[in-house]
């Protein structure tokens, strides 16, 4: 379990976090739900040690190995689909193991036949699938998804959500899922933190198991308006 305890973080004079605490349960999908620009990515970057805090403590990260699905695919455009996944695995596994893992994940995200394509020959949705495959292929135990379905049309989005569920159920890890989309939040999450304001406050935590989805949706929307 990764905990952020009494975190303070300022960017220039802007106070994003003040005495902010949150925890992400092991092998569960925790969702940060809130409007754009509230500081969701900052929280994710603190949890993944990309950003240092001014004050406070981040615990449970000693054994954390991260992978990340960013808003954009962030692929190396000079490498093929295969090599892009291989790129993050090279320091971890020997070649035989990599071949298996990569082919397996390319299969799972339904990109077989595209192994040797470069990203600029693929559509945005396909690139994002590569990014998803890369995140799961990497032996992480903490996965961050930062609005990974942003900019995809409904059909592609539903496909991605389906793929994500499939991948995650086969290889569970702690997930921090960032979104401002109500449907995404209630479909994927085990628990949802509704955040708002500056500095960020947690308005409510919704635990999803057994909870009626429609009811949860209404609650989320009520905070938005």
């Amino acid at each position: 379990m990764i905990n952020l305890v009494n975190i303070n973080k300022k960017f220039a004079d802007l106070e994003i976090l003040k005495n902010f605490s949150i925890s992400f349960e092991e092998n569960k999908i925790s969702c940060l739900f809130g409007p754009s620009g509230v500081g969701k990515t900052t929280i994710a970057n603190i949890a993944s040690k990309l950003v240092l805090v001014d004050n406070g403590e981040v615990t449970g990260t000693e054994k954390a190995v991260y992978s990340y699905v960013f808003q954009e695919p962030r692929l190396l455009e000079w490498f093929s689909v295969y090599d892009n996944i291989d790129f993050v695995l090279k320091d971890v596994y020997d070649i035989e193991k990599r071949v298996n893992i990569i082919n397996n994940y390319i299969n799972m995200v339904e990109l077989n036949g595209y192994e040797n394509y470069k990203p600029n020959a693929l559509s945005g949705g396909m690139c994002q699938r590569v990014s998803l495959a890369r995140a799961f292929a990497y032996p992480s135990n903490f996965l961050i998804l930062d609005e990974p379905f942003k900019g995809l049309d409904i059909k592609l989005k539903n496909e991605m959500i389906f793929l994500f569920k499939k991948l995650w159920s086969e290889s569970k890890r702690t997930v921090l899922f960032i979104t401002h989309d109500v449907d995404e939040a209630v479909t994927l999450s085990d628990s949802i933190y509704i955040i708002k304001n500056k500095p960020v406050e947690i308005m409510e935590k919704i635990v999803m198991n057994n909870k009626d989805k429609e009811e949860a949706k209404k609650l989320l929307i009520s905070y938005y308006t």
């Binding site: 990340y68 962030r74 790129f87």
Partner: peptide
């Protein structure tokens, strides 16, 4: 953004240079 991706995936310095 690519460099940040490398940081997340713990890519070795040499490979960040070469790739």
């Amino acid at each position: 953004k690519l460099l940040q991706m490398c940081q997340i995936y713990n890519i070795k310095k040499v490979r960040v240079i070469t790739s």
